[in-house]
Simulated assay, not measured.
Amino acid sequence: MPLINKSELNYRYSWTAIPGDNPKVTGEPDSTRFSRNEGYEVLYLINKLAEIWDFKKLASAHKIEKMIKNELPSDIQTQKGVKDWIKANW
């Protein structure tokens, strides 16, 4: 069960996958390119990290979202990079 859903996100995102992009992201965070402006990518990563780190509170999901949207350095562009950065800066 996801910790957060689309209607609970605090920021605005694009929800249209560009050609070649998969809106149904699955699996573990890896070297796949990540966009902080694509809602389905942000939502997937928040829920995946909540699952990995056993977060149970919506506040934790919102903190991850805020970190991604407002604090994530622009040179971090992979799912794994985002995961590692959030873990180091929690």
Rank of each mutant, 00 (worst) to 15 (best):
T26G: 13
D84S: 07
L49A: 08
S7A: 14
D54F: 12
K63D: 13
P23A: 05
I86D: 03
S31I: 15
T26W: 10
M67N: 10
A59P: 12
S74I: 10
I86L: 08
E38H: 11
I64L: 05
F55P: 08
W90V: 06
A61H: 06
K57S: 13
Y40L: 05
S60G: 13
A17R: 07
L58T: 09
I64M: 05
Y44M: 06
D84G: 08
P29E: 01
K24S: 14
A50R: 07
E38M: 13
G39N: 01
P19A: 03
V25G: 10
P19S: 09
K83F: 13
Y40Q: 02
S35D: 00
S35P: 10
T26P: 12
L72D: 04
M1N: 12
N22G: 08
W53S: 12
K57A: 15
L45G: 06
N22C: 14
S60P: 12
R12C: 08
N5I: 13
S14H: 06
Y13L: 02
I76A: 04
T16H: 09
F34A: 01
K6T: 04
K6R: 11
E28W: 09
Y11T: 00
N10W: 05
R33W: 08
T26C: 14
K80T: 14
G20A: 09
M67F: 11
W85H: 03
G20I: 05
Y44V: 08
Y44L: 10
N70Y: 05
T78A: 07
F34G: 02
W90T: 10
P2V: 11
N70C: 12
E41Y: 11
S14E: 10
Y40H: 10
N5T: 15
Q77C: 09
A17K: 11
R12G: 07
D75T: 07
W90H: 13
L9W: 02
G27T: 08
L72K: 01
V42N: 00
M67P: 01
A17C: 04
T16V: 15
K83P: 09
K66M: 07
M67A: 09
K56H: 12
T26R: 12
A59N: 15
N5D: 13
L9V: 01
W15Q: 00
E8V: 00
E51D: 14
I68D: 00
S35R: 04
E51N: 15
E71G: 09
L9K: 00
I76P: 07
S74W: 11
K80A: 15
D54C: 14
Y11H: 01
N70M: 07
V25R: 08
I86H: 04
I68Y: 03
W85R: 00
V25L: 13
E38L: 12
L3D: 03
P23M: 08
E8R: 03
A61V: 09
P73D: 03
I46C: 02
V42F: 00
E51A: 14
I86R: 02
A88V: 05
I52Y: 09
W15P: 03
K66R: 14
M1F: 14
S60H: 15
K83M: 13
K66L: 01
V25W: 06
E28Y: 14
P73I: 08
K56P: 06
K56C: 10
W53V: 07
A17L: 09
Q77L: 13
E71Y: 09
K57D: 15
R12K: 11
P2F: 12
E65K: 00
Y13P: 03
N10F: 04
E65N: 03
G27V: 08
